[in-house]
Structure formats: C-alpha cells, structure tokens
Design a protein around this nucleic acid. Structure first.
Length: 480
RNA sequence: GGUCAGUUGGUGAAACGGUUAACACAUCGCCCUCUCAAGGCGACAUUCACGGGUUCGAAUCCCGUACUGAUCACCA
C-alpha cells in the first residue's frame, strides 16, 4: 500500500482560526495514524491578498501545537513550508497549463475579466458562460498571441454526462457536467488559480488524502476534471464539516472570533486546545475525551468524522484546560504559573506556595491574576464579612476567636500549611468549635475577603509568620 | 434561482432495525470540606426537524415537506 501523505494548504491571511487549525490537525492525524507524511504548503497565488508575516503565524502555530511537517525546503537546518509563489518561479504551473493545451484539454481565452464581470452582473442568476474563444481558429489564436494580447488558459469541459466522486465522509456525490464551467487554470497575470495550483501540487507532492473544509465539496468535481485531463490518479477526499460560532455562522476573523493565538493569550494550553478541537466533529469509538496528540493519532478514524458543523463551546474548552492543568507534573505547572504569579506579586511570596493554593481552582492561566489578589494587604473591608452562616460566625464572635488564633499561631515553630492547620484544628477542638468557625475569621482577617483560594491556612503559610501575625493583630485592633 | 449537502437535549455527541436514547460540558440539587474550588453522588430528551411509508419492531431503511449550510469568480 502506498504511503499516506496529507497536506495542510492554507492561504496566508494573517490569522489562524480554529476551524483551520482543526483541518490541519485532522490532516496530521490521518497521516500519522499510518506513519505517513504531513506536508505544509502555503497557497499564496493571489497577489492581491498578500498579508505581511502571515506565513509565520501559520508556521509558528503549527509548531506550538506539535503539528510538525515532515518535509519542505531547507531553512537553516529545519524544514520550511512549501510556498506556491516560490514554486511558481520554476514555471511548473505554466508548463502544466500549456501541456493541457497541447493535449487538447485546455484552450487560450482572450476574454477580458472586466467584461465577464459586467456580463455576469447584468445577467444575474441566469448567467451561463460559454467561452467564445473555443471557436477561435489556430491562426486567430496565433495572431492574438503574436499581438501580445492578454490571455488566460481555461480547461475544456464537455457539457455531456455527469461526474461523480466519493468523499470519505459524505459518500458518493454526483453532479451534472452542465453545472461545471470552463475554469481558469492560468490567470492573465501568469499566476495559476488556486484550484489549478492545488491540483498540480497535490499530484506532484504525491498527496494521497486531500483533507479540507466542506466548502470545497461542490467544487471537487472541477478538480477531478483536471486530474482526468492529465490522466492522473484522483486522491482520497476527506471534506470536514465547519467549526461554527453559532447555529448560523462559522468561526471567523470577520466575526471577531478568537484565533488560536488569542486563546493562548487568554491562558489556554495548546495541548488542551488541540484535544478539544479534535472532538469538534469527530468522536472516538471509546468513551474517553482526554487524549495526547500521539493518542489521538492512534485513535483517529476518518469514518467517525461527522457531517454537521459543530459549535465551538468555550465552556467545555475551559473545563478541559482545567483538566490539563490539574493533571500535569507539578514542576511543569510551577514553571507555567510562575510568570503569571510574579506579574502580580513580583518576588514578595514563594510562587510555588501560591501555585499550590490555586492549583485546583484555575481552569485558565489568565484567571491567576484576579485570583491571587487575596494576598494583597487588606485595605478597607466591612466587618460584616465576618458574618457567615455556614461558619456560624459574625463580627462579635470573631472578636472573641481571633485572639485565640493569634496565640495559637504564635506558638507554631514549623511554619507550613499542614502544621498551621493541625495546630488550629487542635485548638478548635479544645474550644469545642468546628474547624470552620476558627478558620473563617482567620481568612477574613488576613485577606479582608469572604472568598480566598486555598483558605486561611494556605494564606498564612504564603504570607509567612511575621506578616500573618501582623495582619491578624491589625484585624483584632480593627474589631475593637 | 440552479446544484450539492446536512438536521439526536442549551453545547459536543453515541447508537450502525429490537437499550430505560451512552458519555462529556453547562445548569440545578445533595455530600465532603478551612471560604471558593476540586472530588463524589444525583436530576435534566416519554423522544431523535415534520408528515407519510416499509417492518412484528424505525432515531436508525424509503419517499415527500420544512429549515439550515455550501457552491455557482482570472478569491483562496
């Protein structure tokens, strides 16, 4: 069996959206499942749409995601992406277009693009283009060529019959050849059209499985006409349903939807994003949702890709991101969290202790900023927050309890969370109080907040004995 | 408008002619607990867009209707 080769062929628009990334992921997984090759090819044949730095965004995103391509031009010892505008310099697209003319499968067209656009506009929906250039004689064509008249090259299409193909997801689709127009292969600026370059490159790069968005489903028969004209093998087609913003709209830059980079900036992990989007439009055969990239490649099955657009649900991604955070190695977690913590606290407290306190409480890294504000010195707060019905506390009771807490804490020599908790719990039981009745007032005294990640003892352990005692003293004074 | 495709809960989805229609997110309860989380347990579609048909039996097969999307460029 031939080695599987897939490719991701984006046009550089300067924005890597989630739907695109997922297409790249699927192409990657399909290749890797069978130890095949994954190729990156930038399709930039539209000179009017060039965006500065757009290729880098695509390249960097794939790299961050671990979707490494297996070949490409040498870029400082690394594989760069194939770029169509570079490939064009060798003249391959032009050559192939002219070859089709020689074979009698394509023809020169001297119609002006502006004129066609005008005709189309006037005719509206009923527009049907029959290229008059089909009727030109050899001599007429040669004469126009000699006069350097602008031309494009169009594929010859026979109106008779039907064309059908099989998509791995949507099944067999048949269309009337009458609905297929004589597509432009080579534009008058000498550039190939996307459709043409796409077919030439896919064939030359020996792509076995064409993975792309289902918006290409209806134009696939046109592609096949090109393959057939050359007598080439038609690849396996895998058209993926779109990733939607809501019931009606796709996720897109125009709608201001988050790109991959936006999500990363919001504190989502690339692994979690990839894992989540794999599940948009594909379902594993086993009852499981958390997969590494390698595991996805193992489990992936084209047959289980769905046919309907899936709505991107940020809540589920958030949950999954939390799963990744909670299950990663602690050392890795500390490193990840460190810059976010230091951004707010600088070096005032041990970032690992802070990390421990919030570990089970964050789903995204960017939540850290707000969450650790409980470590700020309590400015002004209302004593009413001592009132808590679960702890059965109020300011009056707090005033009674806090001095006992102070005394207990003062006697602790080994200052860490466990020790602090143990001693306070012991004291609580001596006093015949529930733990919470003692802990809650401490939390309020130290943070000035009714909600603080980690709880009273975690805050105390982070603050250190001196700072804890000083804040506690201030809180007691405040109550008097 | 022509052509092509799709339609299971708020969301992602499973099921491949016979189940109480899995599972996960979200939501809502309860438990645990040092607040909040995390974790545990439970509730949440009498029903698979609608209408017919085939069948002992249909979310699953067939035919219509409705709705949604894609496509009809010298854009990709």
């Amino acid at each position: 069996m031939k080695k599987i080769r897939t490719r991701f062929a984006p046009s550089p628009t300067g924005y890597m959206h989630i739907g695109n990334l997922r297409t790249a992921l699927y192409a990657y997984l399909i290749a890797k499942k069978d130890h095949g090759d994954f190729i990156l090819r930038i399709e930039d044949t539209d000179q009017g749409r060039l965006v500065e730095g757009a290729t880098d965004i695509i390249y960097d995103t794939l790299k961050q995601c671990g979707l490494q391509h297996d070949e490409g031009p040498d870029v400082g010892g690394d594989f760069g992406p194939y770029v169509q505008s570079d490939r064009m310099r060798s003249g391959i697209y032009k050559e192939h277009a002219h070859k089709l003319i020689e074979m009698g499968k394509a023809h020169y067209c001297f119609c002006k693009a502006e004129d066609l656009a005008k005709m189309r506009e006037e005719a509206g929906d009923s527009f049907y283009f029959i290229d008059p250039c089909n009727d030109l004689s050899k001599e007429q064509i040669q004469e126009k060529l000699n006069n350097h008249e602008e031309y494009c090259i169009r594929l010859n299409v026979d109106d008779e019959g039907t064309t059908s193909f099989t998509d791995e997801i949507y099944g067999t689709i048949t269309v009337d050849n009458k609905t297929l127009d004589e597509m432009v292969l080579l534009k008058s600026d000498g550039f190939p059209t996307y459709n043409f370059a796409n077919v030439i490159d896919d064939h030359l790069m020996e792509i076995t499985d064409v993975v792309r968005g289902n918006e290409y489903l209806s134009s696939t028969p046109k592609y096949n006409l090109i393959y057939e004209a050359f007598g080439w093998d038609i690849p396996r087609y895998i058209h993926c349903p779109p990733v939607m913003k809501d019931e009606h709209q796709k996720l897109s830059k125009r709608n201001g939807d988050a790109s991959f980079q936006d999500l990363v900036d919001k504190g989502y992990l690339p692994e979690a994003i990839l894992n989540y989007i794999a599940l948009l439009g594909w379902a594993p055969s086993e009852d499981r949702e958390i997969y590494t990239l390698e595991e996805l490649a193992q489990a992936f099955d084209v047959k289980r890709i769905g046919t309907t657009g899936a709505i991107f649900d940020i809540d589920k991604l958030t949950w999954m991101n939390g799963v990744y955070i909670r299950s990663m190695e602690m050392e890795k977690y500390y490193e990840l969290v460190k810059p976010y913590i230091q951004e707010v606290l600088e070096d005032r407290y041990d970032y690992k202790l802070v990390g421990d306190a919030i570990h089970d409480r964050i789903n995204t890294l960017s939540e850290i900023r707000d969450m650790i504000s409980f470590l700020d010195h309590p400015e002004a707060y209302d004593d009413d927050i001592y009132t808590n019905k679960k702890a059965k506390t109020d300011p009056v009771l707090a005033k009674e309890i806090l001095p006992k807490v102070y005394e207990t804490l003062q006697g602790i020599s080994e200052w860490n969370n466990d020790e602090i908790f143990a001693k306070l719990a012991e004291k609580a039981s001596e006093e015949g109080l529930k733990n919470i009745t003692m802990m809650y007032p401490l939390q309020v005294a130290l943070s000035g907040r009714s909600v603080a990640a980690g709880g009273a003892t975690a805050i105390a352990s982070i603050l250190g004995k001196e700072e804890t005692l000083s804040r506690l003293k201030a809180a007691i004074d405040k109550l008097n």
